[in-house]
């Protein structure tokens, strides 16, 4: 399995990680090696096998749909790189 530069650029965009053009070749090579390595799974017969989504043999617990926490705007914003008037701030998204 070989990933070309355009594919790597596309995945990087999906993952929202900026990649410099000069890094694309190297990265495409590395990722292709990894995908070649995992390709060996295709030789395993998995017909009729259910995908395993959890190792814990348990049903997801349910709780009452009630408020259990909150009212701590200071704690929530404590680590924000930028905050204003009790809100996180971001670059302008609406013109």
């Amino acid at each position: 399995m070989s990933l070309d530069k355009a594919t790597v650029r596309n995945i990087a965009n999906l993952a929202r990680i900026e990649i410099r053009d000069e890094d694309l070749d190297h990265l495409a090579g590395e990722l292709s090696n990894i995908m070649t390595f995992v390709e060996q799974l295709s030789e395993v017969n998995t017909d009729g096998i259910e995908p395993m989504t959890s190792v814990a043999a348990m049903t997801l617990p349910l709780r009452k749909d009630v408020i259990t926490d909150g009212g701590q705007p200071e704690a929530v914003l404590l680590n924000a790189p930028e905050a204003e008037d009790g809100f996180f701030t971001v670059p302008k998204v609406v013109e």
Partner: peptide
Amino acid sequence: YYAKAQKVRRLIA
């Protein structure tokens, strides 16, 4: 890839 790996995971378990 992902669904395939989850199936193999079950075989390992």
